[in-house]
Every structure is written in C-alpha cells, then in structure tokens.
C-alpha cells in the first residue's frame, strides 16, 4: 500500500508539474497586463515536442543523446522521495534528503556535459555558469535542509516532515532562516528571475537555456519537463517542510484527498508569490549572483547555528 502511494505520488508529481508551470505563466501574464495562454499550454508544448523529429548536431556524441533521459530520470527519482500528499513514504527511507540533493547533482552533471558536447561557445558558457551557480547554491540548500534534519534528528525526508507536523506550530528562528535560504536557492536552482530568465534567449544573460540550445524534439521535451518538475519539487519542499499542515498522515482516501487539496492550495499561493516577485524584481548581473547566493549560504548556516545554539536540547 505504501509503495502504491509512493508510485502514485511520483506520478502526480510528473503529471502536475507542467500545470504548475502553466499556472505561473498565467499569473505572470495577468500581472503584466498581457493575455494569458491556457493553463494547459505546457502540456500542448510537450506533446508537440515529443511528436517532432529531433535534430541532433553532427558533432554530438552518445552522451548528448542519452543525457535527456538521465536528466529526466534523476529528477523523477528526486521527486519520488519528496512527500507530496502523504508522509510515511517508503522511498524516503531508501534515499534520504542527501541522496535527493545527489540526484539533482547527477542531473546537473549531465546537463552541463551535454552543454559542452557540441563544442559551441553557448554551450560552454551555459555549463560554466550553471556549474558556478550550482556550486554555490547546492551547499546553501544542504545547509537549509540540515537545519530541518537536525531538528527532526533524521535525514529521512518524510520522517522529518512528520516530526515537524507532530511538534505542532512552533516558531523556530532556525526555520525562518532556513526558509529564506531555501527560497533563495530554489529561485537560483530553477533558473528564475533574478538569477536567470527562462523566457529569454539573450546570450549575455542566459544560463539554463544556453546549455540546451542544441536540443530539439523529444530530447528538449524531456529536459523542459525535468525543469518543470524541478520547479515543482522545490515548491513542494518549501511548502511541506515549513508549512506541512494538511499533508496526509494516514492512508485513507479522505486524508489523501485532503492532502492533495492542501498541497494544491499551497502551490497555488507559492506560484502567485513567485509570479509577483518575477514581475517586481529585475534580473541581476551575473556577477551579482554570487552575493545573492552567498547570502543564501549564510542564511542556511545561520539557521543551522541558531538551531544548535538556541534550540537543541543539551
């Protein structure tokens, strides 16, 4: 039963991710006084891309061709360990939160290699920037998550969330720091404004788009889908770690339905915040990103320290 729920949750993740992306786009459009595309537009794009014939550069090696599959699978695996509508996931035990960060690293490793594979300046530029940003963002994320795992004294993600849930609503200073750190990291890692702009192909600023410039057809679909999945994953992480209320503790149909409703509501709200922030904030220069990320890193560290110094029982 547990495994069934785990598979169901993962499927929900994969299926709902484009919808979330569509919703963010919709909100942004409305905020910017534009006419919004349908919420289902990301699905249509994905279907269109999968039905197209992919064109691969002559220079590309086998690595370029298998990279999308690896990236997508690694992201799905990362999604499978994050509790979406119910805690007590069996998959969280086989791969804890450090492994989840490892899956992201795995996907990124191959994405960056794929960027370098064609041998164009754009690909190299994207890979270089992506690895720079992620090498600052990944530790910040680990710090934020370690605050949670030390509070719950487990690195098992569903165990940790269950722990926070059982403790009830307590205002922990460490969690405030960790929340801000994780939000900053999430924005950087999913390539949103102000770090990267998913909507442009401007060579001076692009990061993620520069790496995947050579992809087309189903390969591109997989990568796009993976990045939508990643966006949703970060959203769920923020929502369920810091505001876990509503997630199903028991596996009854009622509780699960309630959990689905809760996470939908939380994600809808988060997406509105994201769209609002993207509308209000301008993209920053590439070499300002380090300050932004070291701030996130510092916040994560502060969160961890304030947990150890202020909160942990001796």
């Amino acid at each position: 039963m547990n495994w069934l729920i785990a598979i169901l949750q993962t499927t929900l993740f994969v299926v709902l991710a484009p919808l979330l992306a569509g919703w963010i786009k919709w909100c942004k459009c409305r905020l910017q006084n534009r006419k919004a595309p349908s919420l289902l537009q990301p699905y249509r794009d994905l279907i269109k891309l999968t039905n197209k014939q992919p064109v691969v550069a002559e220079q590309a090696s086998w690595l370029f061709i298998i990279a999308p599959y690896i990236i997508f699978s690694a992201t799905v695996l990362a999604a499978s360990v994050v509790p979406l509508i119910a805690v007590d996931l069996p998959t969280s035990a086989s791969a804890d939160v450090i492994v989840m960060v490892g899956f992201f690293a795995f996907a990124r490793f191959f994405l960056a290699l794929a960027g370098l594979d064609i041998g164009t300046a754009f690909g190299g530029m994207g890979s270089s920037r992506e690895m720079t940003i992620s090498s600052l963002a990944e530790p910040a994320m680990l710090m934020a998550i370690f605050t949670l795992t030390m509070t719950a004294s487990t690195t098992n993600l569903s165990g940790a969330i269950a722990h926070v849930l059982n403790e009830g609503m307590i205002l922990r200073p460490s969690f405030v720091f960790a929340l801000f750190a994780l939000v900053l990291v999430a924005i950087a890692e999913t390539g949103r404004v102000p770090v990267d702009n998913p909507a442009t192909h401007l060579e001076l600023t692009m990061i993620h788009e520069a790496m995947i410039l050579e992809y087309s057809g189903r390969h591109l679909a997989l990568i796009e889908w993976a990045s939508q999945l990643k966006l949703m994953l970060y959203g769920v992480l923020i929502a369920n770690i810091f505001f876990p209320w509503g997630i199903a503790k028991t596996l009854t149909a009622e509780a699960l339905g309630y959990g689905l409703l809760a996470i939908t509501g939380k994600l809808v709200l988060l997406a509105i915040f994201l769209a609002l922030a993207e509308t209000l904030v301008a993209k920053m220069r590439l070499f300002r990103v380090q300050e932004y990320l070291s701030f996130a890193y510092l916040l994560g560290l502060l969160g961890m320290l304030s947990h150890i110094i202020l909160e942990a029982a001796r």
């Binding site: 064609i118 041998g119 690895m131």
Partner: peptide, 21 residues
C-alpha cells in the same frame, strides 16, 4: 558541502574539455 559541489564543477570541466566538443 561547498567542496563537493566545487568538485563536481571541476570534473565537469575536466571531462567536458578533454572528451567533449
């Protein structure tokens, strides 16, 4: 954590520049 992330960046560079492109 920072070391691990930098190591990944370093070896992406190594593999990418030697074998790819």
């Amino acid at each position: 954590a920072l070391t691990a992330a930098l190591a990944a960046a370093c070896f992406v560079k190594v593999f990418g520049l030697i074998f790819l492109g």
